[in-house]
């Protein structure tokens, strides 16, 4: 799992991510993020990396 920055334009990505949620209800937003996770997971492919990402996401819970 990469933990150093790998996203080409981080601010641009964040802006687009936020914009994708514009006008959605809380439930619709959560649905969108779930679809996004699946699409991104398929880009990653490697199961071990995905498992590491799941663990890291859980560990970072505020």
């Amino acid at each position: 799992m990469k933990t150093d920055l790998h996203i080409g334009d981080p601010d641009g990505f964040y802006e687009a991510w936020v914009a994708a949620h514009d006008g959605l209800s809380e439930s619709e937003s959560a649905d969108l993020d779930a679809r996004l996770v699946l699409l991104l997971a398929n880009q990653v492919g490697d199961l071990q990396v995905l498992l590491d990402c799941i663990a890291a996401a859980r560990a970072a819970r505020g």
Partner: peptide, 20 residues
């Protein structure tokens, strides 16, 4: 239910999600 809905909604459009 939400995660399953994501699989089903993407499977209607994209090949990769069908297998899930």
């Amino acid at each position: 239910h939400r995660l399953r809905r994501a699989v089903v909604d993407l499977a209607r459009r994209h090949e990769f999600a069908r297998r899930l």
